[in-house]
Amino acid sequence: MSLTTAFIAELIRAANETDKLSPYEISRLLDRSIDTIRDMRRQTGIAGSHRSRDVVIDLQVASARARGLSAAEIRDVLLDAADIIRTLKIVLDGKE
């Protein structure tokens, strides 16, 4: 299993166990997601957007607000991050 696949699984597992996560752990997962997405975008040549609807901006806001997010919001944002990373992985695997 690749590191990317393992991280996707970690995000999904965390989304299913939000009650076991501290705000610090949530923020850390989201920060790792942001770094991963930025790196994978560079590799694919897909530019991020500096507009308000870029998923990276949404993840940054969620990371900063981790302490105030509901369990449903945490689940949704972690699953969104996993989905974006999975999609970028598919694009990268298709380039090889």
Score class of each variant (00 low, 15 high):
Met1Phe: 10
Ser2Tyr: 12
Thr4Glu: 12
Ala6Trp: 01
Ile8Gly: 08
Ile8Glu: 10
Ala9Ser: 10
Glu10His: 07
Leu11Tyr: 04
Ile12Gly: 04
Arg13Leu: 07
Arg13Ala: 07
Ala14Asn: 05
Ala15Phe: 01
Ala15Met: 05
Asn16Val: 03
Asn16Gly: 08
Glu17Cys: 04
Thr18Tyr: 00
Thr18Pro: 06
Lys20Tyr: 02
Leu21Gln: 00
Tyr24Leu: 00
Glu25Arg: 03
Ile26His: 00
Ile26Thr: 13
Leu29Ser: 07
Leu30Thr: 09
Ile34Gly: 07
Ile34Phe: 03
Ile34Gln: 08
Ile34Arg: 08
Asp35Gln: 11
Thr36Pro: 06
Ile37Glu: 11
Ile37Arg: 07
Met40Thr: 10
Met40Asn: 09
Thr44Met: 10
Thr44Gly: 12
Gly45Tyr: 11
Gly45Cys: 08
Gly45Arg: 13
Ile46Tyr: 12
Ala47Tyr: 10
Gly48Asn: 05
Gly48His: 04
Ser49Ala: 06
His50Leu: 04
His50Met: 03
Ser52Met: 01
Arg53Val: 00
Arg53Ala: 06
Val56Leu: 03
Ile57Gln: 11
Asp58Asn: 05
Asp58Ala: 06
Leu59Glu: 06
Gln60Leu: 02
Gln60Glu: 12
Ala62Glu: 09
Ser63Arg: 03
Ser63Lys: 03
Ala64Ser: 06
Ala64Phe: 02
Ala64Val: 01
Arg65Glu: 09
Ala66Lys: 02
Leu69Cys: 07
Leu69Asn: 09
Ile74Met: 08
Asp76Gln: 14
Asp76His: 15
Val77Ser: 14
Leu78Gln: 13
Ala81Thr: 12
Ala81Trp: 04
Ala81Tyr: 06
Ala81Gln: 11
Ala82Asp: 13
Asp83Pro: 11
Ile84Leu: 13
Thr87Met: 14
Lys89Cys: 09
Ile90Cys: 13
Ile90Asp: 15
Val91Thr: 13
Leu92Met: 11
Asp93Tyr: 06
Glu96Phe: 05
